[in-house]
Amino acid sequence: MATYAYRCPQDGDFEVRVPLGAATATLPCVQCAGDAARVWSAPELRRTARAVDAAIEAAGRSAETPRVVTGAPGRPPTVVPRGLPRW
């Protein structure tokens, strides 16, 4: 479903949701039932989440200038298991 904008000369702008490509050049106004013409506008674009932007940016940097590793990573912390529960 796509959102299309229409403008009624008497009541102003309103939006309708119809299947993509099924919008007509004119539509009856939802308030006065007069002819409303379709309004052409830029598509509604949304930004991605900051975490996604950061991941994409890091991947791009890595492709251009990968980080050079000079040594082995540090030892992981030692996990001490706890005893079994007593019944």
Rank of each mutant, 00 (worst) to 15 (best):
R50L: 06
A55S: 09
A59F: 03
V69K: 11
T26Q: 14
S41V: 06
E57R: 12
P66F: 02
Q31P: 00
A42P: 00
A5Q: 07
A54I: 04
V18G: 08
V68G: 02
C29N: 01
R61L: 08
S62P: 03
A51W: 06
A51I: 09
T48R: 15
R38T: 02
P43V: 07
V18S: 07
A58Y: 03
A22D: 14
E15L: 14
A49D: 15
T26I: 07
A36Y: 00
E64F: 00
P19W: 02
P28D: 05
R61P: 01
Q31C: 07
A22E: 15
R50P: 02
G60D: 14
E15N: 15
V16S: 12
L27T: 07
V18C: 08
E64C: 06
V52R: 14
P66H: 03
A54F: 03
W40Y: 10
E44Q: 11
D53V: 11
A58F: 02
S62I: 05
A58Q: 09
R7D: 01
T65C: 13
G21M: 04
V18A: 11
A36G: 02
A58D: 10
A23P: 01
L20M: 10
I56V: 15
V18K: 13
V39R: 14
A54G: 02
Q31I: 08
V69S: 09
A33K: 12
E64N: 09
A59I: 01
Q10N: 13
Q31R: 10
A25T: 12
A49L: 08
T24C: 05
